[in-house]
């Protein structure tokens, strides 16, 4: 027990300040109103779906839970069920074999639904493009609010994308 406590004490708090929202990544007008956000605050629950990614984006998504980004400290957490989620975070060029599962997850979410497409593949199919096995970007399958570019986008960019989606409409 003592070595564990010493390690915790020595490590200290390494969490960093979160980035600001980036309105350029918004691809659809905000659907959540300012009043709702005021009530919800930043208590956001996310369901992540890998719809065909190379698993690079998943590594960076997992990194969001490390102490530097401290996602849960901001009131944002990942849930196991889409029925408990406010936001769907989707990676990959949406493989044909995942298309139906992605639609089912989207439909299972309560309204209002937020969708963030993560990575160049989620944006437009990326290097895999659109073909016999891929649908291309996430927006070809379900409505998307915010797109985070990058291959893979680093954790700060993904966090920025999440915060953009929940930021009140700028105007």
């Amino acid at each position: 027990m003592i070595p564990i406590l010493l390690k915790i004490l020595k490590t200290g708090v390494v969490s960093e300040k979160p980035p600001r929202a980036n309105e350029e990544w918004r691809v659809r007008a905000a659907t959540i109103q300012r009043e709702i956000l005021a009530i919800l605050g930043r208590a956001l629950v996310i369901r992540q779906v890998d719809a065909g990614s190379c698993n690079g984006c998943e590594i960076e998504l997992n990194a969001l839970n490390n102490p530097y980004y401290n996602l849960e400290g901001m009131g944002i957490k990942f849930a196991a069920s889409p029925r408990h989620a406010d936001m769907l975070l989707v990676t990959g060029p949406v493989s044909r074999n995942m298309e139906q599962a992605l639609r089912i997850a989207y439909e299972a979410m309560p309204d209002p639904k937020l969708v963030v497409a993560v990575g160049d593949c989620g944006r437009d199919g990326g290097i895999f493009g659109t073909g016999y096995a891929t649908c291309g970007g996430v927006a070809n399958v379900i409505p998307v609010d915010v797109v985070v570019p990058g291959c893979p986008p680093p954790p700060t960019a993904i966090l920025q994308g999440i915060l953009t989606a929940i930021a009140a409409r700028a105007a």
Binding site: G52, S53, S95, N97, F128, G129, A133, T134
Partner: peptide, 14 residues
Amino acid sequence: LGYVHKGIDKRFED
């Protein structure tokens, strides 16, 4: 498995 089949072998032809 096979859910994330992206047709990479075919894509290499491009």
